[in-house]
Amino acid sequence: MPALISGLAVLLAATMVLAVGVGPVAIPLETVWGVIAHKLMPGSVEVVWSNGRENIVWDVRAPRVVLGAAVGASLALVGAALQSVTRNPLADPHLLGVSSGAAFGAIMALIHAGMVFGAITVPLFAFAGALGATALVLAIANLARAQSAGQLILAGVAVSFVITAAGNLLIFIGDPKAAHVAIFWMLGGLGLAQWSHLPYPLVVLVLGGTWLMTQTRSLNAMTLGDESATALGIPARRFRLVIFVVCALLTGCAVAYSGVIAFVGLMIPHIVRFFVGGDYRRVLPLSGLVGAIFLVAADMAARTVMPPQDMPLGILTGLIGGVAFVVLMRRRATN
């Protein structure tokens, strides 16, 4: 297990470095390493590259790659955790209307409110929308006295439909040019990444991910059902609500900076379980690493499929994820 985690960590680092060099303007790997070393340790290497290439590497691609790794890890961790506490193999980060709430907030900022807080306006509104959607789901569940995982999921699905309809209404009545920008954001992408934005998703990932890693025993117990978990001393209902709140924070912060990216949270935990089994002591950390690698690689492909334009990342992850999932299902059926 430690060797596997170390190997995936090395693969993630290599994929991130490779991704910085790939794009409409190819940058040699030695230049990528040189720019990174120069920025982290000024004067450690001789500057033999142009200012333009340095800007591409450090100001455009590097923050984009770091954000992709953070978002991929966050979505995969959330998907794995939700699949445990809901005992639903189709659970993913969008299950509780979190992504719909984030999309609603972003649409409000892009079309109607304007950039009132500068460059951070869209992420701020998206994050507020995600938290608002989560609070609404929990309020409805409490009002309906929903106690089971299935009832909470139904509340989330209902809220998701309502918020999605409200967001579509905002697009319909808004300015067509601004609506085009909002639709592109809803399809997902990392093109708006900036160094100044990265502390927020990274801090949330470290805090939320670390807490989830400490709960692997409880997550294993929750896969057996509420009665079994309670018999093992775990307050199933309260634990599930806490997991939902933590997952909402992780998803909301990720979606706020990347838009709505499909299939990562659903697909990655299943792929990991296919190879290492269902023990969350392995599933959770490996899901985070594989999710980060997958999204960085997918974004690298999105930058090269339709140069000089970027293909929306949500479209690409949906295509790749759907095909990969069908292949896995076929292999499982034949084994």
Rank of each mutant, 00 (worst) to 15 (best):
V45P: 02
W185L: 03
G114Q: 05
T251K: 07
G43L: 07
P308R: 07
H112Y: 09
G277K: 10
E54I: 05
L152D: 00
A165K: 10
A144Q: 13
Y200Q: 14
R64S: 01
F263D: 05
G34P: 01
G189T: 09
L124M: 12
L11W: 05
V20L: 13
R330V: 13
A135N: 01
N51P: 11
P269G: 14
F184G: 05
I173T: 14
G156Q: 02
W58S: 08
A262S: 15
V32Y: 11
R273T: 12
L187Y: 11
Q83V: 09
G191C: 00
V162Q: 02
R273P: 10
H270M: 11
R282M: 14
F263L: 14
N51V: 11
G278Y: 03
V78I: 01
R237F: 13
T223W: 02
R303Q: 09
V323C: 07
D279I: 09
P235S: 06
I261Q: 02
A146Q: 12
V323G: 01
H38E: 14
T334H: 13
G129E: 02
E30K: 10
A178T: 12
L8I: 06
M311A: 15
P307M: 08
L18P: 03
G321H: 08
V57R: 04
A109T: 06
A70P: 00
M222Y: 04
N335C: 10
V32L: 07
P123F: 08
A333C: 05
A126S: 13
L77V: 02
A102Y: 04
